[in-house]
């Protein structure tokens, strides 16, 4: 009933054209290619590539690994963020930490990966400290933290890049949800400090953080730059697996790359629909 003009319809059309159409078109093409309907190998409908991908352990290992890395990073980052907000409340409000916690948001993923390489490599900064304190004799004694099959380096660097943002958001919720007041109230009702933390602060913060955690799980699941530089070559995260298959210029690998792309999209869609991050989150790029 409001005064609607034609321009409003045009803006919605533009939004659909820019936000939904390219992705939908790209995924439709991927689906068609993966079934032999489109592309250079388009010999007609076949499920052969799907069978190859689903029957081979490569995809499952990659998807599982990406899930594990994402879950590990989110878990570690959430734990760190909550610990920082609940332990260093005074510093987060008054000291340099208030500004410092934002610093890592200024690091692009490619730089984070390079920094991880310089920090965790066998002749990196940590190894130098270890050698300086006599813990190791030379670079060869330092445990492999990068390009290792356990993806320790990837998880550490992604966590270093993620936890400051979680801390910033948790700190905002700590204030907006009046958690200090709620904790004081719990204390007057007879709760110990420990109980106030575990029964009030942590559950309330986790509830509020949930949309951010889901969104970051999706981001980390598809992380690219950090595993590209620090990941293990034979044990690859899903973005790396897809990129390698696309870049190999082996025509027979292309349909498989598209199969995995469609599967990746389905997993992302499943995560987003399953947990609906848009409900409560406000936009955050950093």
């Amino acid at each position: 009933m409001t005064i609607q003009s034609r321009s409003e319809i045009l803006f919605v059309a533009f939004f659909i054209l820019a936000a939904l159409f390219p992705l939908a078109a790209g995924l439709s093409y991927a689906l068609a290619y993966s079934m032999g309907i489109a592309g250079a190998l388009g010999t007609g409908f076949t499920l052969q590539y799907w069978q190859t991908v689903l029957g081979h352990s490569g995809f499952w290992t990659s998807a599982g690994l990406s899930m594990a890395v994402a879950a590990g990073c989110v878990l570690l980052s959430t734990g760190l963020a909550l610990a920082i907000v609940l332990t260093f409340q005074r510093q987060l409000v008054h000291s340099r930490l208030r500004f410092g916690i934002y610093w890592p948001l200024a690091i692009p993923p490619i730089v984070a990966a390079f920094w991880g390489f310089q920090l965790l490599g066998s002749s990196g900064l940590l190894a130098r400290f270890a050698a300086g304190t006599g813990l190791i004799q030379g670079p060869e004694d330092f445990p492999p933290l990068i390009n290792d099959p356990g993806q320790v380096g990837v998880i550490l660097v992604l966590t270093m890049a993620t936890f400051p943002f979680f801390t910033v958001v948790a700190q905002q919720f700590f204030r907006s949800e009046h958690i200090p007041e709620l904790m004081r109230l719990a204390r007057t009702l007879g709760a110990s400090h420990r109980q106030a933390v575990w029964r009030i602060a942590v559950p309330v913060l986790l509830r509020k953080l949930r949309p951010v955690l889901v969104l970051y799980s999706v981001f980390l699941f598809g992380a690219y730059e950090v595993p590209l530089i620090l990941g293990n070559q034979s044990n690859r995260m899903i973005s790396i697996l897809i990129a390698q298959k696309f870049r190999r210029f082996d025509l027979l690998e292309l349909p498989q790359a598209y199969v995995i792309t469609v599967l990746y999209a389905l997993i992302v869609l499943g995560m987003l629909i399953g947990f609906r991050p848009g409900r409560e989150t406000k936009g955050h790029a950093l």
């Binding site: 992705l23 995924l27 991927a30 981001f219 598809g222």
Partner: peptide, 18 residues
């Protein structure tokens, strides 16, 4: 919700789709 899709999608994989 639609706006979240391309934003949440891994940019490198989106690029291969495009």
């Amino acid at each position: 919700a639609i706006a979240y899709l391309p934003y949440a999608f891994s940019p490198v994989i989106y690029a291969f789709c495009l």
